[in-house]
Amino acid sequence: MNIFRLAGDVSHLVAIIILFLKIWKSKSCAGISGKSQVLFALVFTSRYLDLFTVFISAYNTIMKLVFLVLSYATVYLIYMRFRGSYDSENDSFRVEFLLVPVTGLAFLENYAFTPLEILWTFSIFLEAVAIMPQLFMITKTGEAESITTHYLFFLGLYRALYLANWVWRYHTEGFFDQIAVVSGVVQTIFYCDFFYLYVTRVLRGSGKMSLP
């Protein structure tokens, strides 16, 4: 555990809590892609199956459980409790275009051809692209509420901090996780355009982020 890794985990947690509280307090999930949230719930489910097989640390177990519970609670709020506010019309990204190639890649490139390892690899690849329905929705509607952009900022910052963590670990321990690093770079690249808009429009302006 180093400072980048810890800051990355905290950033990830902050992002998920921001989104949950936004929906809970406003009683609305307007502007939020339910599809992206289902994909993230799927990411955590397929990655954290090792909760049943190995114990790593209390920190590790608690964080995994918190991520799982919050991701399913968010999906519940969107599709059940506040489904009246769900904008299914604009949440029209075809997730099979992500799931099919990601599943295929997980079978081709993994650390071991075992169910848990393939599911872990699937979760790493899926996480890299899971935000695409949300970014697609923002592009389609042309705007995002500032609280939604704060959520996206912390979610992007999380993987960027993990990249710093991997650079640090490579130099200090000689550690290199090829699957996670390559996917992490791809994942972070997806947020670069958003980071630019966030700094130039949300932080310097006020209120909503609207696209040109």
């Binding site: 991520f67 650390y111 996780d177 996670a180």
Partner: peptide
């Protein structure tokens, strides 16, 4: 450096 996976990372 061999490619390896760290089970601790989230």
């Amino acid at each position: 450096v061999d490619s390896q996976k760290d089970k601790d990372e989230l």
